[in-house]
């Protein structure tokens, strides 16, 4: 995370992102996930490997539940 922390910033607020708990939801289920987030406006960052890896996995699990 730390490298990405330094790389990505919120363009609008012009401040670096910081790790924070973010609520992610699907099909009526919500769970807190630690993501990089703009401390000011709340914009989050989901990296490609998370979106195409773990998130798809969990989506499928929830869909088959």
């Amino acid at each position: 995370m730390s490298e990405q922390e330094q790389v990505w910033m919120c363009d609008n607020c012009n401040i670096p992102l910081q790790p924070d708990k973010v609520d992610v939801a699907y099909m009526g289920n919500a769970f807190p996930v630690e993501l990089l987030k703009c401390p000011n406006c709340g914009l989050v960052f989901i990296p490609e490997d998370l979106a195409l890896g773990k998130m798809v996995e969990v989506e499928k699990q929830l869909e088959d539940k």
Binding site: V22, D23, V24, A25, Y26, L35, C41, G42, L43, V44, I46, E48, A51, L52, M55, V56, V58, E59
Partner: peptide
């Protein structure tokens, strides 16, 4: 890339 899970913002 894309996902179906909903995130804020």
């Amino acid at each position: 890339y894309s996902h179906r899970m909903e995130v804020p913002g």
